[in-house]
């Protein structure tokens, strides 16, 4: 049964069995993302609960333009970013005015994608939540620029700029930590 069929069946019958299918398929990944972003298992468990309730309550609004997984992950990232924001009570790079112009991204993807996993985790943990989320969306979830821009309600060029900056920060932190 495809994701779209599960959604249709759930919306028309409201049977829990269809919710269970979605939960069993995506809860592990959502939980892993929440742990990665919130850095705390208790907060991550609460986040999974809130995220899936939100998914169920807004499932009727899922238009099918993007994949269901993309839509679920977008809700997850936005929820975690909001949580971190509430805790820190400060404004993140997320809200920075980003110039809407053509972006030349000169950092090769393979430099980041082929990092040793342990080092990757350590460097990602030093980035702010927005930079970390945007790199995970692009390289872990293989979301398109259009999907990311829709998730954050930003223009595509603003997202490209954000990715470029996040990659530059990643390279900088990596170089400082592992300059051997």
């Amino acid at each position: 049964m495809s994701d779209e069929e599960i959604v249709q069946q759930y919306l028309s019958t409201q049977k829990e069995v269809y919710f269970d299918l979605l939960y069993n398929k995506y809860s592990n990944k959502v939980y892993a993302k929440c742990i990665s972003l919130l850095k705390n298992e208790v907060d991550a468990s609460d986040a999974v609960q809130e995220i899936f309730i939100k998914i169920v309550l807004t499932l009727a609004r899922f238009s099918g333009r993007s994949k269901l997984s993309t839509w679920i992950y977008a809700i997850s990232y936005n929820y975690c970013i909001d949580q971190v924001r509430k805790k820190k009570k400060n404004r993140l790079v997320y809200d920075e005015k980003i110039e809407d112009r053509d972006v030349i991204d000169d950092v090769d993807d393979s430099v980041i994608k082929e990092t040793n996993v342990k080092r990757l985790k350590e460097v990602l943990d030093e980035l702010n939540i927005m930079d970390k989320s945007i790199l995970l969306m692009k390289y872990q979830d293989n979301m398109s620029i259009q999907d990311i821009s829709e998730s954050f309600n930003k223009s595509e060029s603003a997202v490209k700029m954000q990715i470029k900056r996040a990659k530059e920060k990643y390279i900088k932190i990596y170089s400082e930590k592992y300059s051997d």
């Binding site: 994608k113 040793n116 990757l120 872990q140």
Partner: peptide, 18 residues
């Protein structure tokens, strides 16, 4: 190779289900 996907797989292996 995609280290991001490896990192996710490792996190899922380590923490499992909620």
């Amino acid at each position: 190779r995609n280290s991001f996907e490896e990192l996710e797989a490792e996190t899922i292996r380590r923490y499992g289900s909620p």
